[in-house]
């Protein structure tokens, strides 16, 4: 199979043309406003009575609050967000989880469901068995319970209703910018194309085969023995490539846009989707479809 090599000067420009008017841009050090009536939000700082920008982005004014949103930034947690993270450390009575934020998040022992579903006080034996539940390198899905004073997040995996948080089994992880994930009511989707995805607010997306509701899953038991059939694998891989195409053109990711991108990508083979021009094409078509929806 031939590898495609291209010069850097022939790189594809991934920006999808938009017909909206260019917004007013601010760069660090520029003065936003000289009046003192405004409250300073993220991305701004005050000096000598005037408000100056500290990141490069566009300004968002809500009543009296001035906020500048940068293009890219690390994940800033909010309570109630769904995140996908990786365990980095096992400490006494808690695990440390890497969530692409500026500090590792904490998952306390009492914030997880014990296998078997018992409700009891965690004892010393539970502490010593922590490594059996989750060890370094495991991927989990969790919800943000609390934000500590220093900015680090506190997670929990105790599931309510039928949302199953916990260790993730067979599947694929994709990393995108946190700002590309749209906030929605639910982040666990079973796509009609035949796979299910978890859109973590921190930019980590998890693609896996369809989860049956009856299966005992989540918590700490993962199913690593069942072989995933080839058709499902193909679906998952196609999904991954289309998500990457959308991310490269900075299109918002939510279940509808991903579904459209998947449909658009059907006319190419999975391997062709790695081609930058094809990615751009898929993104442009998805953007059209989304605009028609509005």
């Amino acid at each position: 199979m031939a590898h495609s090599i291209r010069l850097a000067s022939e790189r594809v420009d991934f920006s999808v043309p938009s017909d909206k008017a260019p917004p007013q841009l601010f760069t660090p050090g520029m003065v936003i406003s000289q009046e003192s009536g405004f409250m300073r939000g993220h991305g701004t700082y005050g000096e000598d009575d005037s408000i100056k920008a500290s990141v490069a982005g566009i300004v968002d004014r809500v009543n009296k609050l001035v906020v500048i949103k940068p293009l890219k930034s690390r994940y800033n947690g909010e309570i109630g967000d769904v995140v996908v993270g990786r365990i980095t450390e096992v400490q006494q009575k808690r695990w440390k989880v890497d969530t692409n934020a500026r500090l590792d998040a904490t998952l306390f022992l009492y914030s997880v469901n014990l296998p078997g579903g018992e409700l009891r006080r965690r004892s010393v034996e539970d502490e010593q068995m922590m490594r059996k539940y989750l060890t370094e390198g495991d991927l989990i899905s969790a919800e943000v319970q609390n934000i500590n004073s220093d900015g680090s997040l506190s997670l929990h995996t105790r599931s309510l209703k039928n949302i199953k948080y916990g260790k993730l089994g067979q599947g694929m992880l994709i990393k995108v910018f946190p700002s590309l994930i749209k906030r929605q009511k639910t982040h666990f989707h079973n796509l009609p194309c035949g796979a299910s995805i978890i859109l973590g607010n921190n930019g980590f997306i998890w693609i896996s085969p369809v989860i049956n509701a009856e299966e005992e899953h989540g918590g700490f038991t993962i199913n690593l023995e069942d072989a995933v059939p080839k058709s499902v694998r193909e679906v998952m891989v196609r999904l991954r490539n289309s998500i990457n195409a959308l991310a490269a053109s900075k299109i918002l990711l939510f279940d509808t846009s991903i579904q459209y991108a998947y449909d658009q990508s059907k006319k190419y083979s999975v391997v062709e989707l790695l081609n930058p021009e094809v990615m751009l094409d898929v993104a442009v078509m998805t953007q059209h479809q989304l605009q028609m929806l509005e």
Binding site: D13, S15, V16, P17, S18, K20, P22, P23, L25, T27, A56, G57, I58, D60, K69, L71, S179, L180, K182, S249, K250, I251, L252, Q287
Partner: peptide, 14 residues
């Protein structure tokens, strides 16, 4: 500023 404009399609989210 040019770079921000190029990736401008991101801003509809706001």
């Amino acid at each position: 500023k040019e770079h921000l404009l190029e990736t401008g399609d991101f801003f509809p989210q706001l």
